[in-house]
């Protein structure tokens, strides 16, 4: 084998390993957001939604603000129903007032804007969820956290109560932290 061949082979192997690693990382991310999509659905299930909120809406709207990390994971749950209302996934680059969202997921891409969005939402009956670090401390209601390589979540109970969001006790039991 000549030297060029050796270098080419090594490059090829390096590329192959890199591609393999990239694929693995992508797969992990994909799995994480599949789980988080399921969690979003389950959050909706463990909340006592005020009748008024459900009754006035045609669907149960889950709004994703910013770039969606879920691929098609959220779309997969859109065939489910909450309170007999079909789930509708609404993707939006930014927060638009007037959108009738029951759950607003603020993507990490909105890391610098999340506080403004929270402010804009105010005390509306909207569950705010994000995996931005310290989201629950920043006035959000449920923030995903990774603990021991496991996805957990924190709940800001005070904020939730202000927004008239009531959790079932089971949800509170499995929550990592209550604020």
């Amino acid at each position: 084998m000549n030297k060029l061949s050796f270098i080419l082979l090594n490059c090829f192997l390096l590329i192959l390993v890199s591609m393999s690693w990239c694929a693995s990382v992508h797969a992990d991310l994909n799995r994480e957001y599949q789980l988080k999509a399921a969690y979003l659905l389950n959050f909706a299930r463990f909340i006592y939604w005020p009748e008024q909120v459900i009754k006035t809406a045609d669907n149960f709207n889950i709004c994703v603000i910013g770039e969606s990390p879920f691929d098609d994971s959220l779309d997969k749950i859109s065939n489910k129903k909450i309170k007999n209302k079909k789930i509708k996934i609404i993707y939006s680059k930014s927060y638009i007032e007037g959108n009738q969202c029951h759950i607003i997921y603020i993507s990490k891409t909105k890391n610098n804007e999340h506080k403004d969005i929270i402010k804009k939402i105010g005390d509306s009956v909207v569950l705010t969820v994000s995996d931005i670090d310290g989201f629950a401390l920043d006035g959000g209601m449920i923030g995903f956290v990774r603990i021991k390589n496991k996805i957990k979540f924190e709940i800001n109970v005070d904020k939730s109560i202000k927004s008239n969001i009531k959790y079932r006790s089971q949800l509170l039991e499995v929550a990592e932290t209550l604020r």
Partner: peptide, 19 residues
Amino acid sequence: AESTAASLAFSDAESAGNN
């Protein structure tokens, strides 16, 4: 079962074990 539903829903085996 009721209290474990959340544990199952959020794959929280520890919480389920506690229950």
